[in-house]
Structures are given as C-alpha cells and as structure tokens.
Nucleic acid binder design. Structure first.
Length: 426
RNA sequence: UUGGGUAUAGCGUAGCUGGUUAACGCGUCAGUUUGUGGCACUGAAGAUCAAGGGUUCGAAUCCCUUUACCCAACCCA
C-alpha cells in the first residue's frame, strides 16, 4: 500500500517510543521555571505578519527569507511564528499583563516554523521552550535568567554544554560601534563575500558572524563591541558577570556572539554543545529593552531565552543522559473465552478509575497470545479470567517478572484490593 | 539557493563483474495437543527492488531524467 503523501519536508513525527524523552525535558523545564516564578502562557501558532516584521526585524534572514507567510481567505497576511518572543510580547500587551505587578515572568512551549533547508538539528517545524521576563532592569535579572537555563541543564545531567556571553550594548553605543566596524571593514570591502558586502551598511555586526574563510579572517582583528560600550552598558555587563560569578556559573565572554534577531540589547548569550554536530546552539537569548515599545507598548524592558528541544534531545542522547522511564501497563487481564473477556473488560475499567494502566483483550486473541502480548507490552502483572474465576470470584495475580502468583478476590472492591496489594509489593 | 550522498518487505541490511520463484536479521501473526509470557523450533503474511525512460534475448544490477530523503555550506533553536 502506498500512502498518499509523506510528512512535509523538514517536519518530524514524535513517536510513542520516543515521547518519554519529551516528557522528561518538558516537566524539568516547566517545574524549574516555576521555581523562578514563571507562569505558563500559550499564544497562537500564527500571527499577523507585521508582528514579526517589526518584532523580529526586517533586516533579519528569518524575516526576509524564512517565514511561512500566506494570505488568509480575507486577504490578511498571516505568518506561522518563526520564534516565540514576538507573540508573547504581543499577548502581554494586548491583555494588559504589563499593567500588573512587575516583573512579569512567563514561560512557554511552542512549535516554530522557518522555511530553511533542513539538516541535522535544523527542521522547518521545531519546538522551543522559552522564558520571557518583563520589567526587570537590573543586571541581576540577566544573570538569573542564565542561571535558570543552567539549572535546567544541570537537572537533566547535561555536561557538554558551554555558556558564552556578550554584550551588544544599547542603540547609542552600538551606533558608535557600527561606525567603527564599517570603517574597519571598508578597507577589505572588495574581498568580502557577496552577502557581507550587502550587510556592511545595513547590519555590520553580522559580518563578525560570517563563516566564509575570508570574512572570518577579517573578523579576528575587527574592533570589539566591548571596547565601545557606554558607561551604563559596561556597568550592566560587568554586574551580569559578577553575579554569574557569585552564582558559581562558569562562562566565557565571546565578543563575536551576535544574535540573529534584531531586538537584542545589552546581554546576549548562547549555550553551545560541542558534541552535536554543527548545529551546536541549544539555547540562545538575551535582553531586548526596545522590543515592547517597538510592538506598541510603553517602554518596558524585557529579556528571555529560547531552547531548541530537538537539539537538546540530540545532545542528551549523545551524552546518554537519563530520562524518566516511560509508563507501562500495570495489569493485563486475559479472558479464556469471549464471555470472560467481557468480564475482564469490566475489571479493567475499575482499575482505570483508580488511575492504573490496565488492559484486556480487544482483538479476540487466544489466551496464550494474550499473555504473550502482556509480556510484550511489559505489563507488570497479569491475570486470567475464565468460568472458574467468575464463579469463585477469585483469580490469580501473576507477577510477570518473578512469575509468582497470588490469589486475589475479583468481587466487590476489586480495584481497591489490587491497589493495596500492589502498594505492599512496592 | 549551492555542493556531496542515499533510495530493495513495518524497521535494519545483503544482492549491484546483468541470467530462472529477490535473500537475511528484527518485528507482526499463527502453531509446537488440553487455561498462562519471556527461550527454542516450525510455518504464514508482507517488496509493482523510489518513479519514468533507454540499452539488452534478459535489468534490483548498466545509462539518462525526475522525485524524495540525508549530510554540509548558509542561517539559527
């Protein structure tokens, strides 16, 4: 049989056999974020296109060539979110969240969409865990945010991830830095790669990031942003660093970290894995003090990060990190004949009402095949129901690991009795 | 968008100096007597060998085209 079509390019199914890994990461991230006072928010998968044009920035590659944009039936331009921050800012503004007590701390899990050429660690639909904090001006907030990521990785027992931080200053000091950069690069202008030539005027910081051999060789001696920070920005950055020091979080300052989204100011950071191929950035973030205003709110500072869950799982797999084990069947109840199977179905229902994972035959298999199936799904216990059991109201509970059998009543309060027996065994 | 690679049952592979019914492992289903799994044995189902075209008496195998996927550049999570 040929299926009509496959999953679209750049998408990936998350199958039942792997999903426990997602649960592990999600519950760790959510519970740790909550210890920091974050509350979960969910925003729409698609937004009006201008939100991303303004929020993410018109000059970015993400907006220029990677967005899934289309017109809806009324002709409105709609875009599948390419990242999480803009939508959260919009939602916070629209619902007046910024008028409540600040700081506002939010976290979210979202799928994001970017029309890129897929490769290892890079999908067209990918999942992020993100945190956004609003109204926290102090550099301690920056350190706290980084600390949260660090806590999550530590909790997941991840080791091979390094933190790199930088400051890209405020619009004021960046303007001076841009001038210096342009001047520096102008002497090499003829030798720059095509895209860098274009970027020189519009967004010169991107040149530092260019991977082409020639451009990156120029980047080595390029002026550093850190020498151009104004006093406020320099103070801010140094307090971020000293706070990280006092939190005992190790980092390296990498003056060439330039994030790809326009909204960042001051602190930017990346958590980079060295053991996961070429797409090493597992988490990236920073401060974006101008963004809320850009989207139409009052001037409220913001900062946040986004973590790529697919990439995180790649790194965890590579490091053999432990996951919460998947939940499996507690008790399988087999029936020797159709009538007994129907009876078993009733027993199974009672167990499920108490929260047990319980199954009985729904495919009409022989008794032997049912037990075989119970083994295959790793059922902890099994039980056979036949005419004798129904008449005597007693059955044997079998421990599938040890083979031990125990007589139990299948009459009134069946599920409660099973419950207390299983509690004893544990 | 630009390079490189791959395409054979549900999954993983062999076969690729062209030659009769395309093989193996895992998985699935059934059986190895009577109401109990894991092991072993037996058997069954399951593949228009990515698609289209060409060379040939004959093509999974050689040639061309297309498509899909993977990897990388780029970009970013």
């Amino acid at each position: 049989m040929d299926i009509i079509t496959k999953a679209p390019r750049g998408t990936a199914d998350k199958l039942p056999s792997e999903i426990y890994k997602w649960h592990t990461v999600q519950s760790a991230a959510a519970s740790i974020a909550e210890t920091y006072g974050c509350r979960e928010i969910k925003t729409p998968t698609f937004e009006h296109t201008e939100l991303f044009q303004r929020g993410v920035g018109d000059t970015t590659d993400v907006v220029q060539k990677e967005m899934y944009t289309f017109n809806d039936k009324k002709g409105r331009s709609i875009t599948l979110r390419p990242e999480g921050t803009a939508g959260v800012v919009r939602a916070a503004l629209e619902n007046g969240l910024l008028n409540e007590a600040l700081p506002l701390k939010l976290y979210y899990f979202t799928n994001c969409f970017r029309y890129e050429a897929p490769q290892s660690g890079r999908l067209r639909e990918f999942n992020q865990f993100g945190v956004e904090v609003f109204g926290a001006d102090s550099p301690i907030a920056d350190a706290e945010l980084i600390c949260m990521v660090n806590d999550i990785f530590e909790f997941l027992q991840l080791k091979g991830i390094k933190l790199e931080i930088n400051s890209i200053g405020c619009p004021k000091c960046r303007a001076k830095y841009y001038d210096a950069l342009k001047e520096y690069y102008r002497q090499y202008e003829e030798q720059l790669c095509g895209t860098c030539k274009e970027r020189l005027e519009r967004n010169p910081m991107r040149l530092l990031d260019c991977k082409s051999e020639i451009c990156s060789s120029f980047a080595k001696n390029a002026p550093s942003i850190l020498d151009y920070l104004c006093e406020d920005c320099a103070d801010h950055f140094s307090t971020v660093k000293s706070t990280l020091d006092s939190m005992n979080i190790s980092y390296t300052v990498n003056p060439r970290i330039v994030r790809g989204l326009d909204y960042y100011t001051n602190t930017v950071f990346e958590f980079v894995a060295d053991n996961c191929g070429t797409q090493g950035t597992v988490c990236g973030g920073g401060r974006y003090n101008g963004l809320v205003e850009e989207i139409g709110g009052k001037s409220v500072s913001g900062l946040g990060f986004a973590m790529g869950i697919e990439r995180l799982l790649m790194v965890m797999d590579a490091e053999n990190c432990p996951y919460d084990p998947p939940k499996e069947c507690d008790l399988y109840i087999a029936g020797t004949d159709p009538n007994s199977s129907a009876y078993a179905a009733g027993l199974v229902r009672q167990l499920r009402k108490l929260g047990f994972r319980a199954e009985s035959d729904i495919v009409g298999r022989s008794l032997k095949a049912q037990i075989k199936y119970a083994d295959k799904i790793n059922a902890r216990f099994s039980m056979v129901i036949g005419e004798n059991e129904i008449n005597s109201k007693t059955a044997q509970l079998k421990n599938m690991k040890t083979g031990e059998k125990l007589n139990v009543s299948i009459g009134d309060n069946f599920a409660e009795k099973i419950n207390s027996i299983l509690m004893d065994i544990e």
